[in-house]
Simulated scan of single mutants.
Amino acid sequence: MQIEIRPYVERDAAQAAAVWNEVVEEGDAFPQTERLTAESGAAFFTSQSFTGVACDAESGQIVGVYILHPNNVGRCGHICNASYAVASDRRGQHIGEQLVCHCMKQAAALGFRVLQFNAVVCSNAAALALYRKLGFVQLGVIPGGFRRKDGSYEDIIPHYHVL
């Protein structure tokens, strides 16, 4: 399968929200608890510094999405943050890796100097392996920093990568 990553456009709202909502509903990776509708998704995705979508080149179906935005303001505004979602039936096909690599290039092109992840859940083995492979630096562990869907708490591991 050939994947194309391109900028989000408003006609992508429903498909991008559906991919995003899968991760939200699973309750083990994203801090968000509210599902996006096509309307709220359009507002959310267009409010980012950049939103990228991964499409199956043959069908045009959106199989992944990422958001990129400042992690802070003012004197720390050069540090960005991102989140990635891959459709559950497409995981394990290196789409996440393509999204992260695209995001890093896009972040640098937008003038960001560091990409920081605030809350990588410690049980997210695939993400942890990918970030290690791509040279991200782990900053430590925040005990119980993530509340899972079932109400239990899990450690999070912040990461960064100099762009």
Score class of each variant (00 low, 15 high):
Gly60Leu: 03
Glu25Gln: 15
Ile142Ser: 00
Thr51Glu: 03
Lys149Thr: 06
Arg91Asn: 09
Val53Ala: 07
Leu36Tyr: 05
Asp28Ile: 10
Arg148Ala: 08
Gly96Thr: 09
Arg35Lys: 14
Ile156His: 00
Arg35Gly: 05
Val73Arg: 14
Glu97Lys: 02
Gln32Thr: 09
Phe146Ala: 03
His69Ala: 14
Ala43Ser: 11
Ile67Tyr: 03
Val19Trp: 01
Thr46Ile: 11
Tyr131Val: 01
Asn72Thr: 10
Glu97Gln: 09
Leu110Asn: 09
Gln2Ser: 11
Trp20Pro: 03
His102Gly: 01
Ser123Phe: 04
Val24Ala: 05
Arg11Ser: 14
Gly27Phe: 07
Gly41Asn: 09
Gly60Tyr: 00
Glu10Gly: 15
Gln32Cys: 08
Ile5Ser: 01
Tyr66Glu: 11
Leu128Ser: 12
Ile3Lys: 00
Met104Ile: 10
Cys76Thr: 08
Tyr160Ser: 07
Arg6Glu: 15
Glu26Phe: 06
Ser40Ile: 09
Ala82Cys: 11
Phe30Cys: 09
Gln106Cys: 12
Pro143Arg: 01
Asn71Phe: 14
Ile67Met: 13
Asn72Asp: 14
Leu130Thr: 09
Gly144Ala: 07
His161Gly: 05
Ala108Thr: 12
Phe44Ala: 15
Arg90Tyr: 13
Gly145Phe: 00
Met1Phe: 08
Val121Met: 08
Leu36Thr: 00
Ala18Asp: 02
Ala42Glu: 12
Ala109Lys: 06
Ile5Gln: 01
Asp155His: 07
Glu39Thr: 11
Asp89His: 11
Ser123Asn: 11
Arg11Gln: 15
Leu139Tyr: 05
Leu130Gln: 04
Asn124Leu: 09
Leu110Ser: 08
Val9Gly: 12
Ser123Leu: 03
Leu139Cys: 15
Val24Met: 04
Asp150Gln: 09
Arg6Thr: 08
Pro7Thr: 12
Arg11Phe: 02
Gly96Asp: 07
Val121Tyr: 06
Ala17Lys: 02
Leu36Arg: 04
Glu34Arg: 12
Asp28Met: 06
Met104Gly: 05
Gln2Tyr: 00
Ile156Asn: 00
Gly77His: 03
Phe30Gly: 06
Val120Lys: 05
Phe44Ile: 07
Ala57Leu: 05
Lys105Trp: 08
Val19Leu: 04
Val65Tyr: 01
Ala82Gly: 08
Ala107Val: 03
Ala42His: 06
Met104Ser: 08
Arg35Tyr: 08
Val24Glu: 01
Ala57Tyr: 04
Lys105Pro: 00
Cys76Val: 10
Gly74Gln: 10
His161Phe: 15
Val137Pro: 10
His159Cys: 10
Glu154Leu: 03
Cys101Thr: 15
Ser88Arg: 13
Leu128Cys: 11
Phe136Arg: 03
Ala43Phe: 08
Gly27Glu: 05
Tyr84Trp: 15
Ala125Phe: 12
Phe146Met: 06
Val23Gly: 15
Val141Asn: 04
